[in-house]
Nucleic acid binder design. Structure first.
Length: 151
DNA sequence: GCCAACGTTGGC
DNA sequence: GCCAACGTTGGC
């Protein structure tokens, strides 16, 4: 089983929203590297939910892969902000998995804490200039972050 | 709102 | 294939 981290702006879709709807398609990712990570997610993989553009920014909870990646419907929707005129049904460009709510952490594990933790120096999220919205997380890094969340 | 660090586009 | 211009992300 693999572990991942996905970013979301809580003003658009937060861990509370996920808790409410239980299962959601993780749509709108329009970056090839991030898409490739979404495509390699397997059912049952665990996913950290990271809140960006928030106060504070950090890891807010956990989800699991409920359904493996399939063509992202928003790429065909002319009314969607994620519409991609270059994408066809025969050869869809973008994909999304379904994620299922697992847990909202009792507290946010702030970006600053992640940076300051000596066990997390290799976290891809922290690599200089990494703006990827989907990144793999090593099993021990994942456990460490969950431990931080539980105080 | 600013701006660094990208990723993408398109002319050549 | 190069690279300048432009757009986006996301922390601060």
């Amino acid at each position: 089983m693999k572990h991942w981290l996905v970013k979301t702006e809580p003003s658009v879709f937060s861990i509370d929203d996920l808790k409410k709807v239980k299962i959601t398609l993780w749509d709108g990712v329009r970056n090839y590297q991030a898409r490739n990570f979404l495509k390699s997610m397997k059912k049952g993989d665990l996913v950290l939910i990271y809140h960006s553009n928030d106060q504070p920014v950090g890891v807010a909870g956990m989800a699991e892969v409920f359904k493996e990646a399939y063509p992202d419907p928003t790429q065909f929707d002319k009314k969607s902000e994620y519409f991609d005129p270059a994408s066809t049904k025969e050869n869809p460009r973008w994909a999304c998995p379904d994620l299922k709510y697992v847990d909202k952490f009792k507290r946010i594990v702030a970006l600053q804490e992640l940076r300051e933790d000596p066990k997390l120096t290799n976290l891809i999220l922290l690599k200089r200039g990494s703006r990827l919205s989907v990144t793999p997380v090593a099993a021990d890094e994942f456990r460490r972050i969950v431990k931080l969340a539980n105080g």
